[in-house]
Amino acid sequence: EEEKYTVIYPYTARDQDEMNLERGAVVEVIQKNLEGWWKIRYQGKEGWAPASYLKKNSG
């Protein structure tokens, strides 16, 4: 089951394993960790993003 989330704040990656996020983008969360960083898939790429910048899509 894919978990789709919408980006609610833009984010600029500060590290090579982080993802740039555009507000309104829909991403797939593939791994959650306890530090508040989630691994996401977006446009065929995978990387880490701050969970607080993502909002779960309803339905």
Rank of each mutant, 00 (worst) to 15 (best):
E28A: 06
K32H: 07
E28R: 05
E1S: 05
E35W: 05
Q31E: 14
T6R: 12
I30L: 10
V7W: 01
W37M: 02
N57L: 09
K55C: 05
R41P: 00
M19Y: 04
Y53R: 13
E28F: 06
K55T: 11
I40V: 06
R14M: 07
G36N: 10
D15R: 13
Y11R: 14
D17C: 10
V26N: 06
E46C: 10
I40W: 01
T6N: 07
E18H: 14
E35S: 14
Q16G: 13
T12A: 13
N20W: 05
Y11D: 02
W38M: 01
G59V: 10
W48C: 05
E3Y: 10
D15N: 14
S52L: 03
P10Q: 15
W48Y: 13
S58A: 05
I8K: 13
A25P: 00
G47W: 05
Q31F: 07
I40Y: 03
L34N: 15
A51N: 12
E2V: 07
S58H: 05
D15I: 07
A13R: 05
G47H: 04
E28D: 13
E35R: 13
R41D: 02
K32S: 10
E18Q: 13
E1M: 14
L21C: 03
M19L: 11
K55H: 04
Y5L: 02
D15E: 13
L21R: 00
E22H: 07
T6M: 11
G44C: 14
G47E: 01
V27Y: 01
D15Y: 04
E22G: 07
P50K: 11
A49C: 12
E28C: 09
V7I: 07
V29G: 01
G24E: 04
R41S: 12
A13S: 07
G24V: 00
Y9A: 15
T12V: 10
E3P: 11
S52K: 15
V27D: 00
T12L: 10
G47T: 07
E3R: 06
W37G: 06
P10R: 10
Q43H: 10
Q16C: 08
N57A: 08
Q43S: 08
A13P: 11
K4N: 14
Q43G: 14
Y42R: 05
Y53S: 15
Y53T: 13
A51I: 05
E18D: 06
K45P: 00
W37D: 03
Y9M: 12
A25F: 04
R23D: 13
Q31S: 12
S58E: 02
I30P: 01
Q16W: 07
G36M: 07
S52C: 04
I30Q: 03
N33H: 12
K4T: 11
Y42H: 11
D17W: 06
K32R: 12
A51D: 05
K55W: 04
N20L: 04
E3F: 13
E18W: 03
K4E: 03
E3C: 02
K4Y: 13
K56S: 11
Q16M: 09
I30W: 01
L21W: 01
L34H: 15
K56Q: 06
